[in-house]
């Protein structure tokens, strides 16, 4: 059974592509045949984050228009077995995608025995974002602890509940997961940042994970390496925990507490 998971948020810049790359890599690392699709037609970036930007020949629009085969379009990851990248087109716009065209691609992927299809949604609530979430069985709603991101996440939840294929066909609803990224426990402790509890309370969907703000996220994107492959970093470990939870394991949430400060650093820090 193939599972389709959309990584979405409404707002831009909250970490959808970073999350898509790490979730796909994490699932493949655990032995599942996984493909990650970049739906941001015109603003392709997943290839850069995955470090395969120089290996793109054909793209999603070519595949939708039947100008290239699935085999020609998929890029096989060089680090992880079972991991494939389906890049977006850089020269076309989002109108090049149609539900029928994407349905054909999804069907081909299912016939190629993929366990997971991860859809990296573009920002916004326009056609591209709606295409990315249409076929989803599950959704990872990526949210920053910040007012506009929380509001947009709530909006995208409404769209998932009314415009996904599952909602239109009256099937079991899309399973929603909340992933909080760029979390800074010290600022939460000082009352300057919305807490995990605040966000869960507002959005009222189950929490998949908390990714702490971490310098390694930028380091890894600079290098074209999904941050989940950086076992040393907190962000990498947090993504790894999120994979376990996605696969049904219950794991306590980490990285929610601020490091203890001494009296001197509290006075002068």
């Amino acid at each position: 059974m193939t599972k389709t998971i959309v990584v979405t948020s409404g707002k831009g810049g909250v970490g959808k592509t970073t999350t898509s790359a790490s979730i796909a890599t994490g699932l493949a690392k655990r032995g599942f045949k996984t493909v990650v699709i970049d739906f941001d037609v015109g603003l392709r970036n997943l290839d850069l984050i995955m470090g395969c930007e120089r290996r793109v020949v054909y793209d999603l629009v070519n595949l939708v228009n039947q100008e290239a085969s699935l085999h020609q379009t998929l890029i096989k990851d060089k680090r992880i077995e079972n991991l494939y990248i389906l890049p977006a087109s850089q020269t076309r716009d989002k109108d090049a995608l149609t539900i029928e065209g994407i349905a054909r691609v999804m069907h081909k992927l299912k016939k190629s025995d993929f366990d997971y299809i991860i859809c990296d949604s573009p920002a916004g609530i326009e056609k591209g974002a709606k295409m990315a979430l249409y076929f989803a069985d599950e959704a990872i709603v990526t949210t920053n602890p910040e007012v506009s991101s929380v509001r947009d996440s709530d909006r995208i939840l409404g769209i998932l509940q009314s415009e996904s294929k599952r909602s239109k066909m009256n099937e079991e609803p899309v399973k929603e997961h909340l992933l909080i990224t760029r979390y800074n426990p010290s600022r939460v402790k000082d009352g300057q940042m919305l807490s995990v509890d605040d966000i869960v309370d507002l959005l009222a969907i189950p929490l998949l994970g908390i990714i702490p703000e971490s310098p390694s996220v930028l380091d890894c994107s600079n290098a074209g390496k999904p941050v989940i492959l950086d076992d040393e970093s907190e962000a990498g470990q947090a993504y790894s925990d999120a994979i376990d939870r996605l696969l049904g394991e219950s794991k306590p949430h980490r990285f929610m507490e601020a490091p203890k400060k001494g009296l001197l650093s509290r006075l002068f820090g």
Partner: peptide, 15 residues
């Protein structure tokens, strides 16, 4: 007067 509290109150009404 922590700003996170203000943020949550505003969001609660808005959402």
């Amino acid at each position: 007067d922590a700003s996170a509290k203000v943020a949550k109150d505003r969001l609660q009404v808005l959402i």
